[in-house]
Nucleic acid binder design. Structure first.
Lengths: 137, 137, 137, 137
DNA sequence: GTGGTCTAGACCACT
DNA sequence: GTGGTCTAGACCACG
């Protein structure tokens, strides 16, 4: 379910957050669902438990998760609206990115077709292996 | 001409690179043009010369500019094609970003209108105050 | 394993790059191997960490190694092919150098014998104490 | 007669030295010949007089030139033997370079053929447009 | 004046 | 612990 690129510039904990958020937004993980424990996750992904902990803590802080000491971590009830709201801020990033592409001579039609393709993807398949922007974290 | 956000998560030298690349792509800086010297730039932006040096040096490696010790830094002849090619790789980022927006429930029409607006911007005015994403994540 | 000539005209960071590349090409360092940390290396060679950083960073850019923040630096999987390709460009240098020697009256037989000796060296021993030109001019 | 690459990493004054030495070794300039004045040279090559001066001074220092105040610069009587002796030191460079090529997998036959080709060149034509190693100064 | 290298020492994010 | 960024200040070679 999770795929981590250890060589990526993007911090591992961010990759985990990114993927968890996607799974929630695409309804693969629902409010109330329990997440794998830090320990289990760390073994499964061969990653330092601290790193998992950091991802979970961050999501907890954002109100996406609810970690209950002694019981585990659960998807928060209002995870989806919170995430949706946050993601909307990606619009700023989009503006910048398109601006750059335009400067680089990518035609408007091409850009729009990419947008449409992305929307097609989400309709066909709720989730796929895509693992977020390989940005220089 | 240059504006640095000292609080940004994006390294200062990357901000400088970003802006220089934009100025080149938007024809404000042309091949053969001499850049402000490392020292002048460092004074102008109140930034350590080493940081400017790093930015210039990186652009030199990429073939965007040509540093000649004792003479100065000059925009390389083939700066534009190199940049255009590199920027095209932003298409992957775009796909990811749109995918995220779609998941977050941003309507396709809204997204496309943003794209179109960005293309309007570039047509009307060669450059504007936009200075890249102030955040890295 | 590393020897730095502090008096050389060749920058220290280039000397480090040179030697690392040799060790990789002569199979003393293999893909996946972890390099000494920046700090350890700086202590070992009595050199400022920033200088080591610069060497590692340059090799990272070239795709020879892969720096992972928080984890370390590792020899890249395709380090050898990249290096071999780059080194082949030394052929131009060779042409120039032999041309100079010829002009200076060094006999063809002498030059060829030097070439053959160098090839002997590499066959007998994978590595030896040779550590590159200590002078830049 | 002189061709300077202003963008080269190799300092201009070194390019001039390099070429003058070649012309002497290939008998195009002979002992006693007068060199163009610093002023004339600087105009001809569109180069700062100080730079020409530096090249001439260095050659004077090496005993290749003999600059006579008020009269001009002349090729020294023992320029050729001095140069030949110096160039022999390039043998060390050759050893290094061949060693690198060998490590990079360039076959011995290939390397030797390059050497032979270079010797052919010198027999056919005394000089050509070659302007020395484009080494990183 | 120019770019380039180096040191010393600090701080940050990540594992 | 790791790599990465930044500052302050020095020195060098080149024009």
């Amino acid at each position: 379910m999770f795929s981590i690129d250890i060589m990526s510039r993007q911090p591992i904990y961010e990759q985990i957050i990114e993927q968890l958020e996607r799974y929630i937004l695409s309804d693969l993980l629902k409010p109330g669902d329990q997440l794998p424990s830090v320990r289990e996750m760390s073994v499964r992904l061969s990653i330092n438990p601290n790193t998992i902990q950091k991802a979970y803590s961050e999501l907890d802080h954002r109100g996406i998760l609810c970690s209950v000491p002694g019981r585990g971590c659960f998807i928060s009830e209002n995870a989806v609206p919170i995430l949706s709201e946050m993601r909307r801020k990606d619009i700023e990033k989009l503006e910048d990115l398109v601006y750059n592409l335009a400067l680089a001579g990518v035609e408007k039609e091409k850009t729009i077709s990419i947008v449409e393709k992305a929307y097609e993807n989400i309709r066909g398949q709720s989730t796929n292996g895509k693992d977020g922007n390989h940005d220089k974290g």
